[in-house]
Design a protein around this nucleic acid. Structure first.
Lengths: 132, 132
DNA sequence: CTGAGTGCAAACGTTTTGCACTTGC
DNA sequence: GCAAGTGCAAAACGTTTGCACTCAG
């Protein structure tokens, strides 16, 4: 995907800082603020942490990116894609996306709890293929 | 459950501060640090925030309590119970526990990702029975 | 009696803010 | 040209630490 188009679709101006952020985020798939700052600085050494935070917040608000909260780790951020769950390796910390049919599961939860389910947030942690 | 026994089973000394914390946490089911501090202060006005944090951390380490990370909300804490998923209401912010059979779901995720799954963290958000 | 727990104040790391300057559109 | 974005320094925020005192076991 083209990041300029992506930004414009979310009503955000295209700046070199934003393009760098999206490029680094896309490279890593899932990245913490700290790692993102280091990564963006390599290509764009003048960027400030304040700008990074402002842009992360702007992109979260328009849902261009999403936050992934993981137990015992700092939050990571990803470019918003089709709905999926997250697999996290407790050894190497890698995060993998997994598309899975959740309809049966969600309707059961919905029925049992009497909640109308709008969002699904699933993180399974353990050991990835390489680390086990 | 008796909180004195619960603390002793987790090799933590029994203090009135800890009993207050557990009592407030149990009353609310799921509570943020901020709300917990306010709630504990009512019964135990001399408690300090430092003590609250030290105890939360001690109890997390022994897994007497668990953290629940929820998107767009502050973390909440609960006394550790049997495995369950969380239903969160986006309107009233209430959190409900739900016990559900996850084995089919987990084995599918495991098979597809080649991960060995050790922990399952599921938060479904939407509207509770009262709020819809 | 002794180590663990408490409360205070200071320190810390992370995130946000205000402001002058620059840039995208 | 003007609103929006940037970078800096300062402030705010939540959390942790060091230390003297107290208490549970």
């Amino acid at each position: 995907m083209n990041y300029e188009t992506l930004l414009r679709e979310h009503h955000l101006k295209v700046t070199p800082q934003r393009l760098s952020i999206l490029s680094s985020m896309s490279d890593k798939g899932h990245i913490s603020i700290e790692d993102l700052f280091a990564s963006v600085k390599k290509k764009f050494s003048s960027i400030s942490l304040a700008t990074l935070y402002k842009n992360i917040n702007a992109m979260l608000e328009t849902a261009l990116i999403s936050e992934v909260k993981i137990l015992n780790m700092k939050s990571k951020y990803e470019i918003t894609k089709a709905k999926h769950i997250h697999m996290v390796c407790q050894s190497c910390q890698e995060v993998m996306d997994l598309e899975l049919d959740l309809s049966a599961f969600v309707s059961k939860a919905s029925e049992k709890s009497h909640y109308t389910v709008k969002e699904v947030d699933i993180v399974l942690s353990g050991l990835c293929e390489k680390c086990q």
